[in-house]
């Protein structure tokens, strides 16, 4: 769409800008302020420069939890994206009550408060009172997510797959619905194989939504806090302690304000950097999509 240059548009932005700035800039400044000072109490604080940053970058505990965080985010992406595409491909194509019902059932996990998601899996995966844990034990696996680090990992990953694959599936589903029927008919005339239809018709159209999906899933999984906190409490040991939990422990548990603030900013920057890479490719694909769209319609 051709947009008109008009700086008066700022007046429309202003209320939103004021509100977000109040909630974003002041707190962010507070964090920056903490990160360069050593605070003893309300009135005594020393300027320490980049000391906290150095300390945080050297901190072994944070290295471990950063590593865990990356492994977690990439493993859930590797499972959720293909599985989401698969589910979207299996969805019925025609509109009707069956499709609506399927959509609602699929979206169900997305609407459950995160702590309840944790609770559901905490119950479901327990060996004594949960169906899943009980079934695993009955099948002869020694499964106990509260004691065994690998089991805890598996449970957290499984929980996230359960919780968020529907988002990927719904995104892909809406991408697939946008493909005109004529494409499929042409493919049929050409006797294209199922794979060829996916590779040359469906996948190119899915690209734009897939980037949104990867972006959202990366961001949200990188900030995950509540679900593992309720499910495993970060344990056993530190096996499932991810970045947000480490940060919360530091800031509220130990009240190490300086290092926690420095860590916050580094954390934010990592998310921002990775998301920026995605965002750039997203807007590029968006433009391609528009060109295709105007050519085809």
């Amino acid at each position: 769409m051709n947009k008109v240059q008009n700086n008066k548009a700022w007046w429309l932005i202003l209320p939103m800008f004021a509100l977000v700035a109040f909630s974003a800039i002041i707190p962010l400044m507070t964090v920056v302020n903490y990160s360069v000072q050593d605070i003893f109490d309300q009135n005594t604080a020393y300027f320490v420069g980049v000391e906290w940053y150095q300390e945080v970058l050297r901190n072994e505990r944070l290295h471990d939890s950063l590593l865990r965080q990356f492994i977690f985010s990439f493993s859930i992406l590797a499972i959720e994206i293909p599985l989401g595409i698969l589910v979207a491909l299996m969805m019925p194509k025609t509109a009707g009550w069956k499709t609506s019902l399927t959509l609602i059932l699929l979206a169900l996990p997305l609407l459950i408060p995160w702590n309840v998601v944790g609770t559901i899996w905490q119950v479901f995966a327990r060996g004594d009172i949960g169906l899943f844990g009980w079934a695993m034990n009955a099948l002869g696996f020694e499964y106990n997510y509260t004691a065994n680090a690998i089991d805890a990992w598996l449970t957290v990953v499984l929980m996230d797959v359960w919780h968020w694959t529907p988002l990927v599936a719904l995104l892909c589903y809406s991408g697939l619905r946008a493909i005109p029927d004529a494409y499929y008919q042409a493919a049929k005339i050409d006797r294209a194989s199922r794979w060829a239809v996916f590779r040359y018709i469906q996948f190119p159209r899915l690209k734009a939504v897939l980037i949104i999906a990867v972006l959202l899933r990366f961001m949200d999984s990188f900030m995950i806090y509540t679900e593992p906190f309720v499910l495993t409490g970060g344990g056993p040991g530190n096996a499932t302690t991810f970045l947000s939990q480490t940060l919360t422990q530091m800031a509220i548990g130990q009240f190490d304000l300086g290092p926690a603030a420095a860590f916050s900013l580094i954390y934010f920057l990592i998310v921002l950097l990775v998301s920026w890479l995605f965002f750039t490719s997203l807007s590029l694909t968006d433009k391609d999509q528009l060109k295709q769209g105007s050519a085809s319609s």
Partner: peptide, 12 residues
């Protein structure tokens, strides 16, 4: 802002 971890904003 959507990318800021809520944990970062907790204390401020």
């Amino acid at each position: 802002n959507r990318m800021a971890p809520p944990a970062v904003f907790l204390l401020p």
